[in-house]
């Protein structure tokens, strides 16, 4: 009897938590499919399936362009931070030299910087390079978030590889670049996938720099575009369109996260648990 009650309570707790975790997104999907005046009534179940909100964000706004911008920025950020991270991780993980741990610590310290602390200096720099209102300003400034954790995760993976694998290659006269590309890259690709995904998500979601360095609607990335969606008039509620845009950019992300969940969780917890 006790055991039954306890099992029931556990099930109930799980059910409540599932609703808590999933309901907001479900409700966003539901709202995004409401047309016309249906938005003014609160519904718990879908009553109509109307894709006019989705059609509207693509016809009345440059939302397709915003998505393209986000994709371009995110891919460039991933490629650049993996390249820089891999070469740095090779030095930090495989070669002993003085100042190595101080350097790792400095890199960690950068990840603790409040974003706003570099905002005015970065703004000056972006303007000096003539990158204001250009996507390149974002690719460049996002390095401050993605480089530190890329370097940390790749270095810790690099360290765990046995010494012998590179010694043989060095005996054969392989240079450091050959070592990285031929020996380490094939072994490190799981770590590269994890850090690449995390960098992609960071770049895809970033808001403050994108809000500050980009001026025109056509150059904006997705988060800023969503934050700035307004209704056609003062009396029109923009929530249908906002939710349609939100669902559009979030569904691929959720799919990506669920497909790669094991790798992502390993990457997220790797640094913290060992540290």
């Amino acid at each position: 009897m006790m055991a039954l009650a306890r099992a029931l309570a556990f099930r109930l707790l799980v059910a409540v938590l599932l609703v808590y975790l999933l309901f907001p997104f479900y409700y966003a999907v539901l709202t995004s499919m409401k047309g016309g005046s249906a938005i003014f009534s609160v519904d718990y179940w879908p009553r109509q399936i109307d894709f006019s909100n989705y059609a509207r964000i693509f016809s009345e706004q440059p939302f397709a362009l915003n998505i393209l911008n986000s994709v371009l920025v995110a891919f460039a950020v991933v490629a650049l931070s993996l390249l820089l991270g891999l070469t740095a991780a090779f030095s930090l993980g495989r070669i002993r030299f003085r100042g190595r741990s101080a350097l790792l610590f400095a890199v960690l310290a950068v990840s603790m910087f409040p974003q706003v602390a570099v905002l005015s200096g970065m703004f000056e720099l972006v303007r000096a390079f003539g990158l204001f209102n250009s996507l390149l300003s974002l690719v460049f400034s996002y390095m401050i978030f993605t480089l530190p954790f890329t370097i940390w995760v790749l270095t810790s993976f690099m360290r765990e590889l046995p010494r012998e694998i590179e010694e043989a290659a060095i005996m054969d006269g392989a240079g450091p670049w050959t070592l990285i590309v031929r020996i380490f890259l094939p072994l490190l690709w799981p770590a590269m996938v994890t850090t690449g995904l995390l960098a992609f998500i960071v770049a895809w979601n970033e808001f403050l720099f994108a809000l500050t360095f980009i001026l025109s609607n056509e150059q904006r990335t997705v988060p800023v575009a969503i934050a700035l969606i307004t209704g056609g008039s003062e009396f029109e509620l923009p929530w249908g369109g906002i939710m349609a845009a939100s669902v559009t950019v979030t569904l691929p992300l959720i799919a990506l996260v669920l497909v790669f969940q094991r790798r992502l969780v390993a990457g997220l917890t790797a640094g913290a648990v060992k540290g």
Binding site: L21, L22, P24, F25, Y27, A28, I201, W204, N205, F207, V222, P223, V224, I226, A227, I242, M243, S246, V249, T250, L253, I254, L256, V257, L258, Q261, L264, V265
Partner: peptide, 14 residues
Amino acid sequence: LVPWAIPTVVSAKM
């Protein structure tokens, strides 16, 4: 993983 995967701006709007 779902709330974690949703962009902050999107969850703020939701």
